[in-house]
């Protein structure tokens, strides 16, 4: 079974009296250990897609199944005339905590706490004990090669290091999927390459990665590229890496 399955997903935002159709019926399937890039101009709906996949937002209609869990299901909702087809805010928080690892363009680390504590954060909300948490967080920092910086605060780290802390945070809970939204957008090209290499390694180690970017060379790290235009998938093709 596919790890991630979107069927006829739409998202309509109401801005004032204007309805903005951000997603106009998306069908997308991502298999386990797949490496997918999402490309498209701004306003094409790729950020909305990320929010929906990341359970930060719910679709207006359609079906979304993540790792066997139904996040949103229109038909079920209509059939049972209940909210069973939709997860509550707290359920969504639980899914984000257990199944999703976010990597953001702006890193989004908490300032004033150490790298280690930042990585611990998802584990706190998962209810792990302190001892376990620290072990797991250290393990994640080891994977991103930043164990020697674990007691530094974000403002004492370089951009690349911060992004690696963020990746460690995304990894720490063994998520089903890592969502990277323009992970190199704030980094210079050399550091970008390092970060992409790290993501490549993680994928090779068995992780599933969905990457949003507008840079072709970054997108080409993935095995499959999906192009978005006006809320619809314009193309869906294997990259050279994917074919090879």
């Amino acid at each position: 079974m596919a790890l991630l399955e979107l069927k006829k997903v739409t998202k309509v935002y109401q801005i004032g009296t204007v309805a903005v159709h951000a997603l106009r019926g998306i069908d997308l399937t991502v298999e386990k250990n797949e490496y997918l890039s999402v490309m498209g101009p701004s306003g094409s709906g790729k950020s909305t897609l990320m929010n929906v996949i990341g359970c930060l937002d719910t679709p207006t209609s359609g079906t979304y199944i993540l790792d066997g869990k139904t996040v949103h299901n229109d038909e079920k909702k209509a059939a049972e005339n209940s909210t069973n087809g939709m997860l509550s805010d707290d359920d969504l928080a639980y899914v984000r905590n257990q199944k999703i690892g976010f990597v953001f363009q702006t890193f989004n680390l908490l300032p004033r706490i150490t790298a280690l504590h930042n990585v611990e954060l998802p584990l706190i909300y998962a209810g792990f004990h302190k001892k376990e948490r620290i072990e797991m967080a250290k393990e994640a920092l080891r994977k991103v090669n930043l164990i020697d910086r674990m007691h530094h605060q974000p403002n004492e780290l370089s951009g690349g290091q911060r992004q690696r802390v963020a990746i460690a945070r995304a990894l720490v809970n063994n998520p089903s999927i890592i969502l990277a939204d323009e992970p190199t957008g704030n980094l210079d090209s050399k550091t970008s390459q390092e970060i992409m290499q790290l993501l490549d390694e993680l994928q090779a180690a068995g992780n599933t990665i969905v990457l949003v970017t507008h840079e072709t060379d970054i997108a080409n790290h993935a095995h499959r590229v999906v192009h978005f235009l006006d809320g619809l998938i314009a193309s869906d093709e294997q990259t050279l890496k994917g074919k090879g």
Binding site: L56, Y94, R96, L110, Y125
Partner: peptide, 13 residues
Amino acid sequence: KEIGIRKAVGAKK
């Protein structure tokens, strides 16, 4: 922003 980050990594309401 901190609240947003906490929620993104799984903090409940």
